[in-house]
Design a protein around this nucleic acid. Structure first.
Length: 436
DNA sequence: TCTGGGGTCCTAGGACCC
DNA sequence: TCTGGGGTCCTAGGACCC
């Protein structure tokens, strides 16, 4: 019998920060989204204060200050590296593994050993080797493993590990699971289902197929099958190449001039192209979008999106910046305070088709080696060591990240310092925005 | 006056996930 | 004052083709 395990890092971003700054322990801690906009990770203590996920920072700022809370900008260099360490350890337990998100992985086990024991071993090793606490749920389908994981997390008496497979109280647990907490049931579907007296995972499991298919589409029906224990969603051990690559950011302060927007668009186009090359892909289309801040209802609103095919599929940054700039110029309108712009690459292929519009072979080779050198330098010495002037040097539009911790694990000059003198040492750099 | 049937492809919009 | 970023999939409807 095949059993899925879902391993999920607890309060991942907060846990990463706590590894390097013990003063964050046992305090309410939140990590903010890019631009220090909203709360995207909370410690248990912060959850207990009633701070909701995704809440705008300005709405809970005071409460956190009153409660001796800590607030951090997000530090993806740190989280990405810690994630890789956790995933590497999980890979030591089974070759059948899917990296589902930065803080979650599905593992597939066969055989009938004591899975709870196995789960404890996984938990212990990850904790010991990285300092990150994880929870593990086992089940015969991914959807049930997700539910088991919630149980493991919610009920400390299970010690962070729970197996729902053939469990005598499985139905009772499904009855206790809100329908909106089922994987695949979002806010809209949950509202719809509650309006029809389908309140729990158990109710959903017993809803007729035709009704589910009609209102929740085929994907909803898969969810229901999975609740019944029939696997429909398989393990994606080697994810297919992405279909689109997006890079966008909100500005630190609103931007109105075309010159600044051109810089931002060039910077995002460069970043998107870099991601594309890392996936060994080329793209056939570039899209650019531009929008004012929809939350500022009193300001004049404008949003636009447009796209263009590239002359031939490419991952060559200058070409992508060029197309992105032309797109920006067609959608730009004067007299607005813009909040955000972004670049999307689509039509991604891994193996490049040759085309009549291709540059001559020598030129193609030159482009490739130029990009390879740039990527190598930037990986080694930090991003934007080598950059296109079009993306700007000062970047006055850049997002706010006032409370970022250091890149403790990925940057030599930001390593944690350990002193032997007997004096009190607070976590270095934290809250001071020190990037070293 | 009378105006088919069947297929594909693309796009926009809406839902979901983390 | 202050509201993220990066993805996926499904469906309906229109354009287009024979």
């Amino acid at each position: 019998m095949k059993i899925f395990a879902l391993v999920d890092c607890n309060n991942f971003y907060v846990s990463c920060e706590r590894v390097f700054d013990p003063s964050l322990k046992e305090r309410p801690v939140v990590v903010l989204s890019n631009n220090d906009g909203c709360v995207i990770a909370r410690s248990e203590e912060a959850k207990q204060l009633g701070i909701p996920m995704g809440s705008p920072f300005f709405k809970c700022r005071e409460l956190l200050e009153r409660s001796n809370g800590a607030v951090l900008s997000s530090n993806y260099a740190l989280y990405g590296d810690m994630s890789a360490r956790v995933m590497r350890i999980l890979g030591g337990f089974t070759p059948d593994m899917e990296l589902y998100s930065i803080d979650e992985a599905f593992l597939l086990f066969t055989g009938s050993g004591d899975r709870t024991e196995l789960g404890r071993a996984v938990r212990q090793r990850v904790r010991r080797w990285t300092g990150i606490p994880v929870s593990i749920g086992f089940g015969p389908t991914k959807t049930l493993a997700k539910i088991a994981n919630r149980v493991a997390k919610k009920h400390p008496e299970h010690g962070g590990v729970f197996d729902i497979t053939g469990h005598e109280h499985a139905d009772a647990l499904l009855k206790a699971t809100d329908v909106g907490d089922v994987w695949g049931i979002g806010r809209r579907y949950a509202e719809f289902l509650r309006g029809r007296a389908i309140l729990s995972a158990f109710d959903l499991k017993n809803t007729p197929d035709t009704f589910v298919k009609k209102h929740l589409t085929i994907t909803g029906l898969q969810t229901v099958m999975e609740l019944r224990g029939r696997p429909c969603i398989s393990l994606e051990a080697s994810p297919p190449p992405p279909k689109s690559i997006l890079c966008s950011r909100s500005f630190g302060t609103p931007v109105s001039t075309l010159a600044e927007l051109r810089e931002a668009v060039a910077a995002y186009a460069s970043r998107a192209a870099e991601k594309l090359r890392r996936k060994n892909g080329v793209a056939s289309h570039v899209h650019v979008f531009l929008t004012t801040n929809p939350f500022k209802e009193r300001e004049r609103q404008y949003a636009a999106h447009c796209s263009v095919p590239l002359p031939s599929s490419t991952a060559y940054t200058p070409e992508i910046i060029g197309s992105a700039h032309r797109l920006l110029e067609t959608i730009y309108r004067e007299g607005h305070r813009y909040q955000k712009t972004g670049v999307i690459l689509t039509g991604i292929e891994t193996r490049r088709q040759t085309s009549l519009m291709d540059p001559p072979p020598g030129e193609l080779a030159r482009q490739k080696s130029l990009m390879r050198i740039m990527d190598r330098v930037n990986r080694r010495w930090g991003s934007r060591t080598l950059l296109f002037a079009a993306s700007g040097i000062e970047q006055p539009w850049k997002m706010n990240q006032a409370r970022k911790s250091r890149r403790f694990t990925t940057c030599w000059h930001e390593l944690l310092l350990v002193r032997t003198e007997a004096h009190e040492e607070r976590g270095p750099g934290v809250g001071a925005g020190g990037q070293g």
